[in-house]
Design a binder for these strands. Structure first.
Lengths: 199, 199
DNA sequence: CGAATAACCGAACAGTGTTAGGTTAACTCA
DNA sequence: TGAGTTAACCTAACACTGTTCGGTTATTCG
């Protein structure tokens, strides 16, 4: 196929299909050849629109982070922290398979830094020292990313035999996958509330 | 080379060299061929001692987790949580490159489950409901794994130009890598203290 | 109308995890 | 001691991976 009348590819289309594959097949399930195939194209063609696979993943990551909401700091810093953490987690948990990539280097993406700048500035304005502000922001990220790795409740096996006998206090752990989503959210809310209250 | 007089390989030796490579070159820096080369052997020979690369990584992970200390629950549950979290983080942060792998599925490794069983049982004995115990354990893991991903302080650039101007409140972010270790530990302690206090 | 550019393709390169089949040393047992 | 088995390594290959090079053709601009 030579140059088509109307272009088959665009950065937007590539990003959205890439994210769909990641959601469906996991992070390892995304290859440039598979991505190209689903776009009706050969792998080499992607490199006219995307610099590298890593860059593509970064772009996908940024688009996800753009929904993180730091408007709560207009109210007060506690509300800001809560709202930021909740929207951050919501963004991550709607695309759990990309979280391991995201967690690698969140501090170099513009979408992350813009929001971190607001958080840090608001905390300092509220009277925290710069060092404290940094630590509070870090602690918030710990809870957000820790919970978004989400491999806690949902990481358990649904087979009772994997636990009964061997782990006396985990005899109901096989029930966890069934309530994973709800339990993960409640665990996150518990950790977040305790953290913000304890500051 | 046929069968050598004294075996060149053993599961132990393979694991320890694998971990050394991961510590030195990162998780992606470990390949079966490189591992074999450093062991003075061809890649295929490894498969007489190791089922798959994934299994090898799991074994390495388990050996790291074996140093997590849950003895603090003999004192009381707060002390148990603190000591468990600290030793967990210490174990992870001495091999930061393997954390992304570890975070994938901690709930299926025997070394993890044995300790989780103690944590859960101790919390229930202390009067928490089973559900609360699960959520508290999850929250603790959030902070441990979130902080061990360690990409927070150390993930920043050391070049001032990456921040000044664009992010007004992050004008000293380039100093973070220099104090990353200390700041990460303090942030972890802050989050941990706030969490345990807030329960 | 001619030239430049943009969009795609085929083929290749070096690397990955893993398997099959072969070779030889060391061990086991009569 | 000698035969047979097993264990430990090897080479070669398979099907993948991300990425690059050079080629072909449709569109667009001067």
């Amino acid at each position: 196929m030579p140059r088509p009348s109307t272009p088959l590819l665009s950065p937007d289309r590539i990003r959205s299909v890439a994210l769909a594959i990641i959601d469906r097949d996991g992070l390892d399930g995304l290859s440039m050849r598979k991505l190209a195939a689903e776009l009706g194209v050969q792998a080499a063609s992607l490199y006219g629109h995307v610099r590298t696979k890593d860059q593509l993943l970064n772009d996908v990551a940024s688009s996800i982070l753009s929904s993180v909401d730091v408007s709560g700091f207009d109210v007060d810093w506690r509300e800001g922290l809560l709202r930021c953490a909740r929207s951050y987690r919501a963004a991550l948990s709607s695309h759990p398979n990309i979280v391991p990539f995201l967690a690698y280097g969140p501090a170099r993406r513009d979408e992350s830094l813009k929001r971190l700048d607001v958080v840090h500035g608001s905390l300092v304005d509220a009277g925290w020292s710069r060092r404290e502000a940094t630590m509070i922001a870090a602690g918030l990220m710990y809870i957000v990313f820790g919970s978004a790795l989400s491999s806690f409740s949902s990481g358990f096996s649904a087979d009772p035999a994997d636990y009964s006998g061997r782990y006396p206090h985990l005899d109901r752990a096989h029930l966890l996958p069934g309530v994973a989503r709800e339990l993960d959210r409640d665990s996150f809310e518990l950790a977040l509330a305790a953290f913000v209250r304890g500051l």
